[in-house]
């Protein structure tokens, strides 16, 4: 028996730490890591609710698996972009890559 709020607090904590990382880190790789933290927080929730609701088709767990897969794809592309930026700009500090500004 596990109290659900415990699991959810854990997940909320992971998510908030991830948000902090995304907002405060300059290094693009570290930002990607923080995003992984946030994705994991979501996965914890999915699995927990899958157990809470006792869904017969295990939708929560299957979704967690999909999220992991998509996260893998995202990291692959993200890192490729990071390396490309590094090759062009000699830096992967996000605040120095501000071409979004007109």
């Amino acid at each position: 028996m596990i109290r659900l709020p415990l699991v959810l607090f854990f997940s909320a904590g992971l998510f908030s730490v991830g948000v902090y990382g995304v907002l405060a880190r300059r290094n693009a790789v570290l930002v990607l890591m923080s995003i992984e933290l946030m994705l994991n927080a979501v996965n914890v929730n999915l699995v927990a609710f899958s157990q809470l609701l006792r869904d017969t088709i295990l939708a929560g767990q299957v979704f967690a698996l999909f999220v992991i897969t998509v996260a893998a794809a995202e990291v692959g592309i993200g890192l490729a972009i990071v390396i490309l930026i590094y090759r062009n700009r000699e830096t992967i500090n996000i605040d120095e890559v501000n071409l979004l500004k007109w």
Partner: peptide, 14 residues
């Protein structure tokens, strides 16, 4: 507001 800094935008978002 439009600094071009993605992380600044992310702060606004959150």
């Amino acid at each position: 507001i439009q600094s071009g800094n993605v992380q600044r935008y992310a702060v606004f978002l959150f």
